[in-house]
């Protein structure tokens, strides 16, 4: 677990295995969202947390969702999981996850295979690659955003002027 490994030296790899028992140590915990699920389902939906006082240098990998409220320098690789940077989270790392939500500060590149959201409290300096990206009002972002929706996600029709933007003549024709 992250908590037991938090004293490792820089560059050491932090691994999460899906068959580990849930629990927490130090400022790091894991929360299971539903106790009624089967064992595998329960583990796949569990969420680990790096607490505010925890500092990690190195690579984080794993097979469960992760919330970072502490400080991380290095990289985070959770390609099939959700990653959330909490409001107190300060991350200087490249991030790779299925869904990434940033409420805190990130310096580094972010790759989201499904979606990246920078909330109103989020601060990101780096490049984002994801099919869908949302910047909430108040979010601070500097860098590039690379969006390729892919064939399946692309809309059938290309953009068209909104109804409000159409001239009266055009609207009449349309009706």
């Amino acid at each position: 677990m992250f908590g037991r490994d938090s004293n490792k030296k820089d560059g050491e790899r932090f691994e999460e295995h899906s068959n580990e028992e849930s629990g927490h140590a130090g400022g790091v915990s894991r929360q299971t969202r539903s106790s009624n699920l089967s064992s595998n389902q329960s583990i796949s939906r569990s969420t680990a947390m790096i607490g505010q006082s925890i500092q990690i240098n190195g690579t984080i990998t794993g097979a469960e969702n992760l919330v970072i409220e502490g400080t991380v320098d290095g990289s985070v690789e959770l390609p099939d999981q959700d990653l959330t940077i909490g409001e107190s989270g300060q991350v200087t790392a490249n991030l790779d996850a299925k869904n990434v939500t940033v409420n805190g500060q990130v310096t580094g590149d972010i790759k989201g295979s499904e979606k990246v959201v920078i909330s109103k409290t989020g601060r990101v300096k780096g490049n984002i690659t994801a099919p869908r990206v949302t910047l909430e009002d108040g979010a601070k972002f500097k860098g590039s955003i690379d969006m390729d929706p892919g064939e399946s996600a692309r809309p059938a029709a290309k953009i068209a002027p909104t109804a409000a933007a159409l001239s009266p003549e055009v609207k009449q024709e349309a009706s």
């Binding site: 500097k142 860098g143 590039s144 955003i145 390729d148 692309r154």
Partner: peptide, 8 residues
């Protein structure tokens, strides 16, 4: 319907 890169 186009791959887009936006730099802010």
């Amino acid at each position: 319907d186009t791959a887009t890169k936006i730099t802010f």
